[in-house]
Nucleic acid binder design. Structure first.
Lengths: 141, 141
DNA sequence: AGTCCTTTGCAACAGTGTTGCAAAATATTT
DNA sequence: AAATATTTTGCAACACTGTTGCAAAGGACT
């Protein structure tokens, strides 16, 4: 399978050794068109994955620039694939996130860039997160 | 004391009976120039407050429009006083929040309004949260 | 294949938030 | 002001989220 090979390559490109759990979890993210939380991943596979391993996998994926985390008001951090990578690997996403109040799906709106914010004197920005919540395209019937 | 009386009035104006814990917690928010998390409140008073009571108090304050909650990437929801209230009580804040990476202080930048975001077709916005993180005016030395 | 290093899985723990229920405090009525 | 009704508190217990340490298993490399 080409996808298998792609996932393998993706891990190695980011300096991660290719293990079964990592391939599985990265596969979940490629299959899903939405952001995933730890709890989602725990129940997604046919064989249940170890909780701790998932935490550590997500952590290393974020560190190596494969995933980015999305803050939320409901205290459940979600993760999504990083689509564009800078050369240095350390890459700050700058797109808007959308979270559906009805189905809890979280989307990366890659095409919408966060506008530049002018901070008061004395404040220096490092990262900016913009999360819009409401009703998503699937729930809008 | 006038402040005591103000706090009392504030509670009643929002349809909450005036109890000692509520007066204490509301007092904390008036004294602080920053957003407070549950953990902060737990250790602030001379007499320790019950954890559950704090949760319930914060909840009712948010429901009645006294406080608003601020999402964060570090999974610790913070709360801050609502400064302007609509007539109906149900009031959506629309200002930018700033969180310091060094001291973890969270500020409401009331003077900066969140720019309007144009969502893709099919998405309807209900609330928009914008959190900037970096170095605050106090840590900037 | 053998060695080295990383990752996994388990147990245990710490923090965050919720629920149920009896006792206490507040509000309301007389 | 006392009695009653209602709300809030504090405790115990629980569920969920996330972390750490350590021995065993798995990948990487020569």
């Amino acid at each position: 399978m080409t996808r298998e090979k792609d996932i393998n390559q993706m891990l190695k490109d980011h300096g991660l050794s290719s293990t079964e759990t990592r391939r599985t979890i990265l596969g979940f993210f490629h299959a899903a068109d939405k952001a995933l939380a730890h709890a989602d991943i725990e129940t997604m596979g046919t064989v249940p994955l170890d909780r701790v391993t998932i935490y550590r996998t997500l952590q290393s994926f974020v560190e190596k620039g494969l995933l980015h985390s999305i803050p939320s008001a409901d205290n459940a951090v979600r993760y999504a694939l990083c689509k564009d990578h800078c050369a240095d690997g350390h890459h700050h996403d700058n797109h808007v996130h959308f979270m559906c109040d009805q189905c809890s799906r979280t989307y990366c709106l890659d095409e919408i860039t966060i506008p530049r914010i002018k901070l008061p004197l004395g404040f220096t920005a490092c990262q900016t997160d913009l999360v819009v919540s409401g009703v998503c395209k699937t729930c809008q019937s």
